[in-house]
């Protein structure tokens, strides 16, 4: 559990980080380190250089801007799950952040590191998809802003440009009256999501669904939006049958993965069951 040798540099601004990455193509950014370091200790990753961005002050914190909640990339899971703005406006994010790893991980791990690392079993991608998040940052070519939908390309792979620094994540505050939840099946060993479902649900004056966004993580190589289930639910009355029927489509937009713990069939089943449970839990 001893990593290969690497150099370490602490930077204090995003520009310094960009310069370090440009100077050393072998370098990796490190924030909380709770995704990268375990890989390094197993020697599954062996970056020659680590650029530590934790000291960049303006990447911390939560603020409300024009119908969005903008969270600095270095904000920790513990800060997010306890933050009153997140808890009131993005409750599914608070719920998900509170279930990541253990206390130590939540105190060190950051939202930006988590999303940029793009572990397919990570909790936050489901939430980012459900809240229509935008991931912003700087690359050698300038600023970028990428929607969560399309950001996650595969295991540990994102649409971020090479040599870039993720700086903040902007979440759309869902329309008033909507409810949002995060429903998770944790792996009993790793604590990662075997399946995680984030659902943002709104209903009209007749109780019929008029706002539905569902993000699914853990089920396969990459988190996805359950578009077919969303479409099936829109306009429906909040009956058990309608929810069940819509949730039956929740695995269609993803490619189910398989491991020792859960087969693809079982995962698909869990996605459907927990999508239905998430929707029911989100009903007023």
């Amino acid at each position: 559990m001893i990593p290969s040798a690497f150099t370490y540099e602490r930077v204090h601004t995003v520009d310094e980080a960009l310069a370090s990455l440009a100077a050393n193509p072998e370098a990796k950014l490190i924030a909380g380190g709770h995704s990268l370091l375990p890989l390094m200790k197993m020697r599954l990753a062996a970056p020659a250089a680590l650029v530590d961005i934790q000291a960049i002050r303006n990447l911390h914190g939560v603020r409300e801007v024009d119908g969005q909640v903008v969270i600095g990339a270095l904000t920790t899971h513990a800060e997010i799950s306890a933050h009153p703005v997140v808890r009131s406006l993005l409750p599914a994010l608070a719920e998900a952040a509170a279930q990541i790893g253990d206390l130590q991980v939540r105190n060190r791990g950051t939202i930006g590191g988590n999303l940029a690392h793009a572990d397919p079993s990570s909790d936050l991608p489901a939430v980012a998809l459900a809240y229509n998040a935008t991931l912003r940052g700087l690359s050698p070519a300038g600023e970028f802003a990428l929607p969560a939908d399309g950001f996650f390309l595969g295991p540990l792979t994102t649409a971020m440009p090479e040599g870039a620094v993720l700086t903040e994540i902007a979440f759309d505050v869902p329309p008033a009256g909507t409810q949002s939840v995060y429903q998770k099946v944790p792996h009993p060993a790793s604590g990662y999501a075997v399946v995680g479902v984030a659902a943002v649900i709104g209903t009209d004056e007749n109780g019929c669904f008029n706002y539905v966004r569902i993000g699914v993580t853990g089920a396969g190589d990459v988190a996805y939006r359950a578009v077919a289930a969303e479409a099936a639910l829109m306009g429906q009355p909040p009956t058990d049958e309608a929810i069940q029927a819509a949730a039956g489509h929740a695995a269609e937009d993803g490619v189910m993965g398989e491991d020792l713990y859960a087969s693809a069939d079982y995962r698909a089943h869990l996605v459907q069951v927990h999508t239905a449970r998430a929707i029911r839990r989100a009903l007023p």
């Binding site: 375990p38 197993m42 792996h187 009993p188 060993a189 790793s190 990662y192 020792l260 713990y261």
Partner: peptide, 20 residues
Amino acid sequence: VYDDQAQLLTGTWMDYAMPK
């Protein structure tokens, strides 16, 4: 769990579930 080449597939606490 070993595979058919007798490689241990559950070789870390990420895959081998200890009771909590």
